[in-house]
Structure formats: structure tokens, C-alpha cells
Computed example of a mutant assay.
Amino acid sequence: MSNDPRDVQEFFGARAAGWDARFPDDGPAYAAGVAAIGLRPGDKVLDAGCGTGRALSVLRAAVGPAGTVIGADLTPAMLDEAVRAGRDTEGALLLTDVGRLPLRTGVLDAVFGAGLISHLPEPGTNLRELARVVRPGGRLALFHPIGRKALAARHRRQLTPDDLRAEPNLRPLLAGSGWRLDSYVDEDTRFLALAVRED
């Protein structure tokens, strides 16, 4: 699959209806990924590429009733599934490209992106847009419920040196986009890269 937005929409649109059923045991991994961000009650957080909204309830629990949770996704069918699952009660859903967010500069405290980076059409530009909407010192969590090696095996692919999620590639990509990589975990049970928004 290419990272062209139309191809991404087509790919996820065709799989939206059965998406949650394919990954029924991811809940604890999502909870641990969100916990690592260090959100506080009242914080404002974006789930970028939220899909069916599996992280929204965990994000809502972290920021509490006074916080703001926004789920943004490019694929209407994924957001329809989020509504069908009742997850629109946990946060506002936006049908939008995360590369062109309808949000003010510096309005967010954090961004959570599950499986996001490998689907960005222009990773550097798109990560700069995420940096734009986050306040200085705010956080970015690039997450996946399984690590790079396990994911490659699931898709019957080899890990390649040009994988954007590999630390030697991700660190400079983030640095050139307004972020500083703060911690990096890539193990069978999760992938989590935490970055801080530079001043």
C-alpha cells in the first residue's frame, strides 16, 4: 500500500467494519502506551489517525472530564465504526488529514499516534504539523501494540534499514520536525517512541 491519502482511505475503509475484532487483546498495550505520555487531568490531547477510536476511552480517563480529547482520522468508515462503538462520547471526532489539522497553533498538550508514522504521506511535513498544534514541552507518543519485528512477521515481511520507525531513522526525522526523541522502546509486545515538542 502506498501512503497516498486516497490509498490509505481505501485500505482502511475496506477493513473498518472488522477492525476491532481483528485485534481484541490490544487494550492493555494501549493503556500502557497512553500511561507513558504522562497526561494530567485537564490536558488537551489528539489521537492522530484514531481509526475506530480504540485509544479514546483511555485518553479520556487520563485527562478526566475537564480535559479535551480529539480523534482525527482520514477514513470516514473508521470514524463510523468509532461512533457505532460509542467512542464518540469519549472525545470529538474529526474527519481530517493529520497533515492539515483545523486546530490553532500550540493548543494541545500531547498527540498520540497508534500505527501512524508508516501511513504518513510526507512524514517530515506531517510531523511538523503535529508539532505546530502542540505547545512547547508537549509530548508526542508514536505507538504500536506490537514491535517492529513482530509486525513485520505478522505481514510476512522483512525488516528493512529504511523503516521509519527504526531509531536511527526516527530520531533525525523527529529532530527535523520540531521534536526531540525522549525514549524509545521496540520489543515484541510494544513499540513506543516518546518525543518532546522543542521550543
Rank of each mutant, 00 (worst) to 15 (best):
G27Q: 12
R100C: 11
G49Q: 05
L194G: 10
R15G: 02
A193P: 12
R54G: 14
V8Y: 03
P102R: 01
A72F: 11
D182M: 01
M1G: 13
V63Y: 14
E81H: 07
L170W: 02
D47H: 11
P136M: 05
N126C: 12
P168I: 13
L174R: 03
L120K: 08
A35W: 01
D80G: 04
L130V: 00
V58G: 11
G147W: 07
L181Y: 06
A166C: 06
D7C: 01
A32D: 09
T105G: 02
P145L: 00
R156A: 14
R197C: 00
R87A: 13
I146D: 09
N126A: 14
T89F: 01
G99F: 07
L59W: 12
G113I: 12
R54L: 15
R54S: 10
I146A: 06
L164Q: 00
G53V: 02
L120Q: 06
G86W: 00
M1H: 12
D7R: 09
V83K: 15
A193W: 08
A110H: 13
L170D: 07
L101I: 11
R60G: 01
T189R: 15
C50G: 10
A82S: 08
D188G: 14
A32W: 07
G13F: 05
L159R: 12
V196D: 05
E81F: 04
G124P: 10
P123H: 05
L94W: 13
P172G: 04
A66M: 10
P65D: 15
K149T: 15
R84E: 09
D97L: 08
L127H: 11
R190C: 08
G27M: 02
